[in-house]
Write a protein that binds this DNA or RNA. Structure first.
Lengths: 343, 343
DNA sequence: AATTTTTTCCAAAGCGCTTTGGAAAACTCA
DNA sequence: TGAGTTTTCCAAAGCGCTTTGGAAAAAATT
C-alpha cells in the first residue's frame, strides 16, 4: 500500500492524504480522521526512502563503533548505552544506524560516506580520547554530533554529555582516606581515554590535598577486563608495600580485583577495600540490601536517554548553541570497604 | 556533489556515470576509470535514499531489541554479537538498523513498520524463546529473516544459526561425572529461552544416561546476572545436601557462583567444581595459560559473522532454502574443576 | 564502399513521497 | 445577493538515483 493507492481508496488527492497524516492545518478534522483510520487499517506508512528523498532528512542517527583502537574489544557499557539512546530515538521516529568499522579500516571514511550519501541526520561519538580527532573532523565535515564524554584537549565548543568523572574519583578517594587508607591503588581504564584521564586527575587531586605522595607504581591503566583487575591486584598484594585500598574503573575490573584478594586469603572490606565506578549495567545490579561494592554510580542507560534528547533537539534546531551537560554520580556504600587495617 | 553535477563535470550522461560506478559491462574501461577517479576525488557517493527508492532495496538490515520481556535487561552478549554481524554487513555495503522497543510498546509493530516503510531488506531475530512467535509472524509478513538460536516448538522451516547447546551441556555434565561428581547443580538462563531449554535437556540427558536422578531442587533458571549466580550458590552451599559441582549458563553467573564459594571459605576447583558456558566476550577473556573456568566455549562474535554471511546470501538469493547451521563448542579445561571431594 | 555488428553513450521514465502555487467550494458579511 | 474570506482540496514539480529502449559512433565484415 502506497500513498497513491491509499488516496485512490479514499477518493482524495495524494496531497491531502499526505497533509492529513503529517498534521498540517489545511485539512479538516473530519478528513484527517478518515485518513488516519484508513492508514491504520491498511497498515500504510510512508516509504522511508521516498520520504527521505523528498524531505532531505534521513530520520536516522549514526553510531560508529571501531574496535581497532581498543584491541578488538567491545565496550561492555555499549549495550546499555544503546538501549537508553534507542528508546528515545524510537519515541521521536528516529532509527539508529550502527556502523561497525571492520579491523584495519578507516573510521573517518564511514563519516565521509554518511555525509556523501546523507544516510544520517546526526552522529553520536562514543568513547572519546583525550585528544579525539573526530570532533574537529565532524565539525569540518558538517555533520551535527554529540559526544558521550568529552575530549579534554579540544578547545572548540561542541555538544557533549558526560559524567563528572573527576569529582567522582575525588569523592571516592576522599572516602577511602576518611577510612584511614593512605596507600590507595588505582586500576584505571586506558590512559588516553578521556574518562580515565579525568578520573586520574580526581584521584591525584584528592591525594595531594591530603598530603599523600602520588606513587605511579600503584597506578595502572588498561582495557577494563576482569583479568586486568585480577592480575594487577595479585601483583600488588605480593609487592613489598601493598595498598590497603583499590580504586577501580569498572565493576568488571573490580570483580577481578576481588577474585585476587580472595585468592590471596584476604577479605574484601576488611584487609583490602575496593571502591569502583558502577555504570549500573543491567546484568550487574550492584544493588543488594547492602551492595557488593562501594561505588560511584551513574546509569549509563539514563545518560544515553538524556544524550539522545539533546541530540534530537539539536537536529530540530540547527542553530542552537551546542548543549553540554554534566551528570554527577552517587557515592553508595557497600560491602567492599572498611577502615584501614591497623598493624 | 550529486550524480548530475558529477556527470556534467565529466561531460558524460548520468546513465554512463551510474553504470561506470555500478560495474556494468557496457562502459569502456577508460571511461570507467575516469569516472571512478573523479568520484573519489569529489567524494561522491550515491544518495542512499534516492538509490533505495530507485532500486527498491534499503541496504539495511534490522535488529529489533525488546527489553520488556527480560526485566529491562540488555543481553551482555549483545555487544560482541553485534560487532561480529556489523563487520560483515560493512564489507557488503549493508547498514545495521537497530530499533530499541521502548518498554510497554509492541515489538511486532516495529516489524510492521519495517515492512510498510520498507526500511530494511531483512531482519535478525535474537534471543528466541522456545515458542517464539516472531518466526511465524515474520513469515506471514514476508520479511526475510534469520534467527540467532532456534525455537524448539516451531515446526515450519526457517533460517537459523545456533550453538549446539544440548551437546555442549551433555559434554560438560559428562565431564563432571567423569571427575566423580554425582550431585551437579544447574544455574540456567530463563527457562522459556530456547538455549536454556536445550541446555537443560543436555544436562538431564547426561545425568539420566549415568543413572543419576534429576533433582529439580538444584536446578534454577533466571536472568543471567552475577547476583543470581551468587545467591543460588550461597543457598546451595548452605543446604542439607549441597552439590559438589555447578554448571552455569554464562561467565557472569559463574563469577557470582565463584564469589559465593569463596565467601563460604571453600575453594573452587577443589571443594566445588564449576563449569560454565563461555561466549568469549571480548571483555572477558577466559584465556590465561590455564583459564579461570572450565568452559564450553563458542565465540558469539564469530557466530554473528557467520550469521550475517548467511543472511546476505539469503537476500541476494530470495528463493533459496532457509539455511541452517549448528556450531559445536569446545570444552576447555580450566582451574575451576577437579575431582569430586571424597568424604 | 556498403552493410552488419559491436561498442559506447544518452534521453527520459519511474521509484513514492513532500510541497508549491492555485483553484474550487463553503462561509461570511454588508 | 454578490463581493470578499476562509476552508478544503488538487495538479504537478522535484528530491537523486537506476534502468529501459534506442541512437550514434566505431569496428568488423562483405
Amino acid at each position: 500500500m502506497n500513498l497513491k493507492e491509499l488516496s485512490e481508496l479514499l477518493n482524495l488527492s495524494q496531497t491531502t492524504v499526505s497533509r492529513a497524516l503529517n498534521g498540517f492545518p489545511e485539512v479538516s478534522e473530519r478528513t484527517r480522521e478518515r485518513v488516519q483510520k484508513a492508514a491504520k487499517q491498511n497498515n500504510y506508512a510512508p516509504n522511508k526512502a521516498a520520504r527521505g528523498l523528498a524531505t532531505g532528512q534521513a530520520l536516522s542517527i549514526g553510531h560508529v563503533i571501531s574496535t581497532t583502537n581498543q584491541n578488538e574489544m567491545v565496550n561492555p557499557v555499549f549495550g546499555d548505552f544503546v538501549a537508553g539512546v534507542g528508546e528515545v530515538y524510537s519515541k521521536h521516529g528516529y532509527k539508529m544506524l550502527l556502523s561497525i568499522v571492520p579491523p584495519g579500516e578507516d573510521e573517518y571514511q564511514v563519516y565521509r560516506e554518511f555525509k556523501a550519501q546523507s544516510t544520517v541526520d546526526a552522529v553520536v561519538v562514543q568513547s572519546p580520547s583525550v585528544d579525539d580527532g573526530r570532533i574537529e573532523f565532524l565539525n569540518k565535515l558538517g555533520i551535527p554530533f554529540i559526544v558521550h564524554g568529552r575530549a579534554s584537549e579540544c578547545k572548540v565548543p561542541y555538544a557533549w554529555l558526560d559524567v563528572n568523572n573527576r569529582s567522582a574519583f575525588v569523592r571516592a578517594t576522599d572516602f577511602l582516606h576518611d577510612l584511614g587508607h593512605r596507600r590507595i591503588a588505582l586500576l584505571n581504564g586506558r590512559e588516553h581515554m578521556d574518562f580515565a584521564h579525568r578520573r586520574q586527575q580526581g584521584y591525584e587531586s584528592s591525594l595531594s590535598s591530603h598530603g599523600i605522595e602520588i606513587d605511579p607504581s600503584i597506578m595502572f591503566s588498561s582495557d577494563m577486563t576482569e583479568s586486568y583487575g585480577y592480575q594487577r591486584t595479585a601483583e600488588l598484594l605480593k609487592s613489598d608495600n601493598p595498598p590497603t585500598a583499590i580504586l577501580t574503573a569498572s565493576i568488571i575490573v573490580a570483580l577481578g580485583a576481588r577474585r585476587a584478594v580472595q585468592q590471596a586469603g584476604l577479605t574484601v572490606g576488611q584487609d583490602i577495600s575496593i571502591v569502583t565506578h558502577d555504570d549500573r549495567l543491567s546484568y550487574f545490579h550492584n544493588t543488594a540490601d547492602v551492595p557488593m561494592f562501594t561505588a560511584t554510580k551513574s546509569s549509563v542507560r539514563e545518560a544515553g536517554q538524556r544524550l539522545a534528547e539533546l541530540l534530537i533537539q539539536m537536529i530540530a534546531n540547527p542553530n542552537m548553541e551546542p548543549p553540554t551537560e554534566l551528570l554527577e554520580v552517587e557515592l553508595t556504600i557497600g560491602n567492599s570497604t572498611g577502615p584501614a587495617p591497623t598493624n
